[in-house]
Design a protein around this nucleic acid. Structure first.
Lengths: 123, 123
DNA sequence: AGTTAACTACGACATGTGTAGTAGAGAGTC
DNA sequence: GACTCTCTACTACACATGTCGTAGTTAACT
């Protein structure tokens, strides 16, 4: 059921909603001027996401306020998992390996990751 | 320049080409019957990918043989990096953390990953 | 040579996305 | 009450993708 896939653009808008809790097209535009989209464009995207069940909305006076129906963690999980399926045959460790091999991590990162792994092992 | 993004469907076809080195639509269909696509569909996708510069082609008799112009590693790198940008603000360690937190890895996986990390640290 | 089998090329159509303009309705202003 | 401002709703259009069907070409078989 939780197969939520958002495009980059869609994600960047919903991201603002996650941060704000809820918001109108205008709110998003003001909190993220870098997006540089006409407010009507933002409205269109939001409406489409509502139609897809990603958001819900309610009227607050003249403004339509959107609320995410799914959590950021949920979407991340689903999108990462999707990529892992496509690129690594579902093997998450393979993605890990890819990350390690392909990018030299900083020493600090390495230490941090190891700590994470240790904690995971304990629990 | 190496901003190669393939859809899942596209990836699954090119994947076969990476495995075979090169191949025609027919070859792909035979090596991956699970795809369950009309051969004309495969041909269309391949042609479009050629137009985008992902593949090149040459005639072998009346067969059109396609060859990947970019490596699997390249595409993986680019697609993973893309996801990391979108979901984790470009922070690869954050993706690592997500993987660790979100999925309990098997003990074996953990060991393997740690080994990878150690090797990375050495080099 | 005529018929058939194998391919490719092209066109088609649906859906999703990116992007925005325009019309219409309610709220506030003179 | 008339005018204006502000939002939303709707429409539009271009492009990518998923999926094929049909037509046309060429090799091959008898």
């Amino acid at each position: 059921m939780t197969a939520h896939k958002l495009s980059e653009q869609q994600y960047s808008l919903v991201e603002v909603l996650w941060a704000l809790g809820e918001g109108s097209a205008k709110d998003i535009q003001q909190h993220q001027p870098d997006l540089d989209l006409a407010h009507t464009t933002i409205g269109t995207i939001l409406t489409r996401l509502e139609k897809k069940g990603v958001l819900s909305s309610k009227m607050r006076g003249r403004e339509k306020v959107f609320v995410p129906l799914i959590s950021e963690a949920q979407v991340k999980r689903s999108m990462v998992s999707n990529l892992v399926s496509t690129l690594f045959g579902g093997n998450k460790a393979a993605l890990m390996a890819h990350l390690v091999e392909d990018n030299q991590f900083e020493k600090d990162d390495l230490a941090e990751i190891k700590k994470l792994l240790d904690e995971d092992a304990k629990s």
